[in-house]
């Protein structure tokens, strides 16, 4: 049952990716100028533009260009970057690793803390801790992540307390990861905290938790055996959405900290109308989005005994 569901979802995932690639391709075509013009910039002479267009096969009809690209992708060849002139996979190799590490660290830091804070707020409902958390998450959620980043730099960077470097350097130590990870963590955590709190409150007021308490179980067992497992399902969805957001949200944060990840590559690629590179990065982000959501659904189902046991 579950397997079939996953298979169907994967199929629709691939369909979505294909649709995304069409839309992105159309969007890059709609942008003014082409790769040859953007790459050559002000040094573009008609002769140089013509030569570069020839090299990049930009003179072929748009549909043919897309078909050629798709043909390659189906065979596992993402093509050659227009601006870098080397295979897209080679260009993305380093940045993908760096971005995934950054996102992974942010998720590892943000998720457990957010879950704990949310659950604790629910237990301390309407007390000082709960109100502070509510206000804090509301404010943080309202501020764009790059502003959070700038504030963190001002507070903890060289201009402020000077605890952590505010810019990524190839030769830097592990402390340079702190500010980018914190920035992303602050950006993803608030909805998780709020959802965890709401769900926990709901669960704690439910009849089965009342029942468990009436049975005389100690509060610890009530929480871990009865309350938490029932809260996980809905919260997992939010966690997944937030982690999926990371894949896109990393773009602005990478720019801010000069972090060599896919965000920086994507911005360059768009500027250069580097279609194969834009496609690859967007498909990657969309792919992460789809997979993380799928994982959340599976987790949600697995956490729901009704679904897990029945049928």
């Amino acid at each position: 049952m579950m397997l079939r569901l996953v298979a169907i979802r994967l199929f629709f995932g691939l369909l979505t990716l294909w649709a995304v690639s069409v839309v992105v391709f159309a969007a890059t075509q709609a942008l003014p100028g082409d790769a040859a013009l953007m790459i050559l910039g002000r040094d573009a002479t008609p002769e140089r533009v013509a030569a570069l267009r020839d090299q990049l096969n930009l003179n072929a009809p748009v549909t043919v260009q897309y078909a050629q690209w798709l043909h390659g992708v189906v065979q596992g060849d993402l093509g050659t970057s227009y601006s870098n002139r080397s295979p897209v996979t080679e260009v993305l190799n380093g940045p993908i690793g760096a971005s995934l590490t950054l996102m992974g660290l942010a998720a590892l830091v943000a998720t457990p803390i957010a879950l704990a804070v949310g659950a604790f707020s629910a237990l301390r409902r309407d007390r000082a801790f709960d109100h502070t958390t509510s206000l804090g998450t509301l404010v943080t959620a309202a501020i764009p992540e790059f502003v959070v980043g700038i504030l963190l730099i001002l507070a903890l960077g060289p201009g402020g307390l000077d605890v952590f470097p505010s810019v990524y350097s190839r030769n830097g130590g592990p402390e340079q990861w702190v500010l980018p990870v914190l920035t992303l963590a602050f950006a993803v955590a608030p909805p998780i905290v709020r959802m965890m709190r709401a769900t926990m409150i709901e669960v704690l007021e439910s009849e089965y938790v009342q029942q468990a308490r009436l049975k005389g179980l100690d509060e610890r067992t009530v929480l871990t055996r009865h309350a938490l497992p029932n809260a996980i399902g809905p919260v997992a969805q939010v966690v997944a959405l937030q982690l999926a957001w990371l894949a896109g949200g990393v773009v602005a944060v990478e720019f801010l900290f000069n972090f060599p990840g896919i965000g920086k590559v994507l911005m360059d690629a768009i500027e250069n109308r580097d279609v194969p590179l834009v496609q690859a990065v967007v498909l990657l982000i969309a792919g992460v989005y789809i997979l993380v959501n799928l994982a959340a659904d599976v987790l949600g189902l697995a956490a729901n005994p009704k679904v897990r046991v029945a049928r």
Binding site: I153, G157, P158, G159, P165, S166, V167, S169, R170, N171, G172, F255, L256, F257, N258, K264, M267, D268
Partner: peptide, 19 residues
């Protein structure tokens, strides 16, 4: 030679001594 598309990051790098 390090690339710095962002003005702020470049100045921060000098401030923090990484360049």
């Amino acid at each position: 030679i390090v690339d710095f598309p962002s003005d702020d990051a470049r100045v921060n790098a000098l401030n923090s001594g990484s360049v």
